[in-house]
Design a protein around this nucleic acid. Structure first.
Length: 833
RNA sequence: GGGCGGGUGGCGAAACUGGUAGACGCGCCAGACUUAGGAUCUGGUACCGCAAGGUGUGAGGGUUCGAGUCCCUCCUCGCCCA
């Protein structure tokens, strides 16, 4: 069929999307004998409208998925919906629309937009986390984990968001406010359910070393978040009491410099050891601290403060008595909730000691250079490692030696030991919300008087969310919404059959995204969360694309869950993802984050409408490297559109004349140049894709198109055949970036198959090397001339050609040659004085 | 404060293991075709200079025949963690 003269994306894109769908070209499993690739983008929360961040995210995966199809792999590239969660419920509180209704609407419109960009998803595998057939497996995992001690109920201080009226995770607290709604977060004592992720802290840490294809910043963030710290515990005897005070320190080598110890205000020994005359002040202080949040207590500008308890503790090595204080900067849930203070060698302790006139004793000196002044003259804490002084038997040892020796000695005497602590805490996942996975637990007063909770029997899963009167139940206030649904919350005990109550809390939605990547393997499987046979075939994910903001939440939780799935015998892999790609942000044209507030939002739909999906795709990829942020530019979009028009015009111009052109003999002259341009482009684009350099891949195609234009109209049969081949190859290399125009051109040039179903051809090595190449000629490192010589010219020939150049001769005149540098196929350098 | 990234033309950016800095695109300038063009095509475009030539990758030093790239000191912007 003859191509239209004008490039009209609107006229072709919908057609190809329908054809791809109808033919099912993107269905995984079509090539059972071929090696697989699993390409995945992070599960989207379906807001009504797609934004550019989504477009970019899915494109990065899409380029790979298409490229891998063409490379002959069996590709799994699915998409689904993170459909439970707060935004839909918050909206319901405002306008009374049931979250399920709103979510369904949002998914429908979001999906329509996704489809308009021509992504190559296998829609047969779409999953929706709000479907009971999905969340029943959250419940199933919960029960399996409960049986294995990986889920437990605890009574603890939780982060309570005053805006969302729910508990949120540590990771969701930013600067003391909720990252979702910016409301203040306060500490609240509540019972909650938690995953024992800390059982895997060390493994999650060690295994980071195997994630060699993850961005360094992400593994670094996880390492930091897990926060392993190697330290020691030491017991101080409390004078006048039969009590030991256990402190945690990372600097046991400074123990001889300890001049006081500090307890967390809520440490359990405080009440016991405080002397009667200090009691009033200590209690008042503790009460004040209890009312403050963690961030208030530890915030940047917060003054260190504390009070003396009146009690004394004995240094386990020297027996020396030091006062016991309580202070705001010691937290009960880190380490042992008690620290030994060594003001000479810790900044915080130093500031505290100076404020309250406590003694400062120097016990570490720098390994080289001047010694420190005595404690009372010290101007700042010396916190580096060094050599011990005034430290009994350890004097003269280095910090490193003393850390080992002192911890060993404590352990031998039963006064302490070397320990490892982690900053990472267990993952509290109870949420006082409706639109989440019901926690499959019932409370029976008869069978379970301690209210530990009884698991719902597996055969009764899923525990479905009840139908509700939205306005009556979702008020945003008070007890968990499900507690108000009497017909649901009142149930029978699975053990005795008597009356019981259901757990009214729901799960954090991060649970959903922990294992969705495995559900895609067999989205309708009903014997387990997924089919282990498929896991053997498709796991791990080969390429995972998403935002770097998920460095420590989702990406840590789902690594944890991967371990659970292995433990349960479902999956064979240790890590979920081989290669992680974190994409940069698409900012507005003004350089600010796209936001309604700034009025700088560029809607993907408007770009698709005006220029077509191919332009939107190619522009977003051309704008810069995947990991980097970029500012939207309307002018650059125009430029990319212009490029696609050039591609179209090139193809349309030569279509008729080259149709059926064949040539058997060798190619020469213009025909050869056309073939060279095409094969060089093929090589360059393939290499750029492998390197994740999509912007230069597109630049390479642009160069190829420019080179073909420069060749003008093909005249001979050889030229026509070469041009037809070149246009077909152009369609091939365009496929990952601009698949619609690629298929349209390919079809017009006689192809019977989708470009994505064709093989990515091998370039002809003979066509990508030039016969004559330029050499740079330098004299003393400065460029003086450029010469063109045969590509296979020997050093002597290149040198002779270089010496023959006038400019080189001028530069060398009157000088003595000291050295000659020859870099094959690059440059020569005359070093002369 | 700690960790991690970045600083290259008027702008977005290229430059594989040290080897012609600025590919490709935008913008701008000129020309062609046009009644016209903000369509399209062709050419030019780092800076200074008429030119020869010189200078240039945040600043300063170093290693090297040769440094955007490696080493040291510093400035600056961004993100994450405190």
């Amino acid at each position: 069929m003859a191509m239209n003269e004008r490039y009209e994306p609107q006229a072709i894109e919908g057609k190809w999307q329908t054809r791809w769908d109808d033919a099912g070209v993107f269905r995984a499993g079509r090539r059972p004998g071929a090696p697989k690739k699993y390409v995945l983008e992070m599960l989207p929360y379906p807001s009504g409208k797609m934004h550019m961040g989504h477009v970019r995210n899915y494109l990065l995966g899409d380029v790979y998925a298409r490229y891998f199809w063409m490379k002959g792999f069996d590709v799994l590239h699915p998409l689904g919906w993170d459909a439970l969660g707060l935004p839909a419920e918050n909206a319901a509180i405002k306008d009374g629309v049931h979250p399920a209704v709103r979510t369904a609407e949002n998914i429908a419109s979001f999906k329509k937009e996704v489809k308009s960009l021509g992504y190559c998803y296998d829609w047969e595998r779409e999953v929706n986390t709000s479907d009971p057939e999905y969340y029943r497996w959250n419940q199933w995992f919960f029960i399996q984990m409960l049986e294995r001690g990986l889920v437990y109920r605890r009574f603890s201080k939780v982060n309570w968001c005053t805006g969302c009226h729910t508990v949120i995770a540590n990771e969701q607290v930013k600067d003391g406010v909720c990252e979702r709604c910016d409301s203040p977060v306060v500490d609240k004592e509540m019972p909650e359910w938690a995953f024992r992720i800390t059982r895997y802290s060390q493994d999650l840490l060690d295994s980071l070393d195997t994630l060699t294809e993850w961005p360094h910043r992400i593994t670094a963030a996880q390492r930091n978040w897990i926060g392993r710290s190697d330290g020691a515990e030491a017991d101080f005897r409390v004078q006048g009491h039969d009590a030991l005070l256990r402190v945690f320190t990372t600097r046991i080598d400074t123990l001889f410099g300890c001049t006081y110890v500090v307890l967390a205000p809520d440490h359990k020994l405080v009440a016991q050891v405080t002397t009667p005359e200090r009691r009033a002040e200590v209690e008042a202080f503790a009460k004040r601290m209890a009312a403050q949040s963690k961030t208030e207590r530890l915030g940047e500008g917060t003054e260190k403060e504390g009070v003396f308890t009146g009690a004394y503790a004995e240094n386990p090595f020297t027996g020396q008595a030091v006062p016991i204080w309580i202070a705001n900067f010691v937290l009960s849930d880190y380490g042992t909730g008690a620290v030994m203070s060594v003001p000479a060698h810790d900044e915080r302790d130093f500031a505290f000691a100076r404020k309250y006139s406590l003694p400062v004793k120097v016990v570490i000196h720098p390994a080289s250079g001047d010694k420190l002044p005595p404690g009372d003259k010290l101007e700042a804490a010396y916190t580096e490692y060094g050599v011990l002084e005034d430290s009994g038997a350890y004097t003269g040892q280095t910090s490193e030696q003393a850390r080992q020796a002192m911890a060993a000695s404590l352990e031998k005497d039963g006064k302490g030991k070397a320990t490892v602590t982690y900053r990472q805490k267990d993952w509290g996942f109870s949420r006082q919300r409706y639109w989440g996975t019901p926690i499959p637990i019932v409370y029976c007063e008869k069978c379970d008087p301690d209210r530990n909770g009884l698991p719902v029997p597996l055969e009764q899963l899923p525990v479905r969310l009840p139908e509700i009167d939205t306005q009556a139940v979702l008020t945003g206030k008070g007890e968990p919404p499900l507690a108000k649904v009497a017909s649901w919350v009142n149930t029978t005990c699975p053990k005795c059959g008597g009356p019981a109550r259901r757990e009214a809390e729901t799960m954090d939605t991060f649970v959903d995204s922990c294992w969705y990547f495995a559900r895609y393997l067999s989205p309708h499987y009903d014997a387990a969360p997924f089919d282990p046979k498929e896991a053997q075939r498709f796991l791990p994910v080969d390429i995972y694309v998403g935002g770097p903001e998920h460095a420590v939440m989702h990406l840590l939780y789902f690594r944890f869950w991967t371990r659970v799935m292995k433990l349960l015998g479902l999956s064979p892999v240790d890590e979920p993802v081989k290669r992680l790609i974190t994409q940069g942000i698409v900012n507005g044209p003004d350089g600010r984050k796209m936001s309604k507030r700034w009025g700088n939002v560029v809607a993907p739909s408007s770009i698709v409408q005006k220029y077509g999906a191919d332009t939107a795709r190619a522009y977003v990829l051309f704008a810069g490297p995947p990991e980097r942020d970029f500012d939207w530019s309307d002018d650059q979009v125009e430029g990319v559109f212009r490029f696609l028009k050039r591609v179209w015009t090139l193809a349309a111009t030569h279509q008729e004349a080259t149709a059926g052109a064949t040539h058997d003999g060798p190619y020469e002259g213009k025909a050869l140049e056309i073939r060279r341009a095409a094969h060089k482009t093929l090589k360059r684009v393939g290499e750029a894709i492998e390197r994740l350099s999509f912007n230069t891949a597109i630049a390479g195609i642009m160069e190829g198109v420019n080179a073909l234009y420069a060749q003008g109209t093909p005249e001979t049969a050889a030229e026509k055949a070469a041009m037809a081949e070149a246009v077909r190859l152009l369609a091939v290399v365009l496929t990952p970036f601009a698949p619609h125009i690629a298929d349209e051109i390919s079809e017009a040039y006689g192809s019977k198959d989708f470009t994505v179903a064709q093989a990515w051809p091998e370039f002809d090595p003979a066509l990508v090397v030039d016969d004559v190449i330029p050499y740079a000629v330098q004299v003393n490192g400065k460029l003086r001339a450029e010469i063109r010589v045969a590509a296979d010219a020997a050093e002597a020939d290149v040198r002779a050609a270089a010496e023959a150049d006038e400019k080189v001769q001028a530069a060398l005149a009157g000088k003595t040659l000291r050295k000659f540098v020859f870099v094959p196929k690059r440059l020569v350098n005359f070093v002369a004085t």
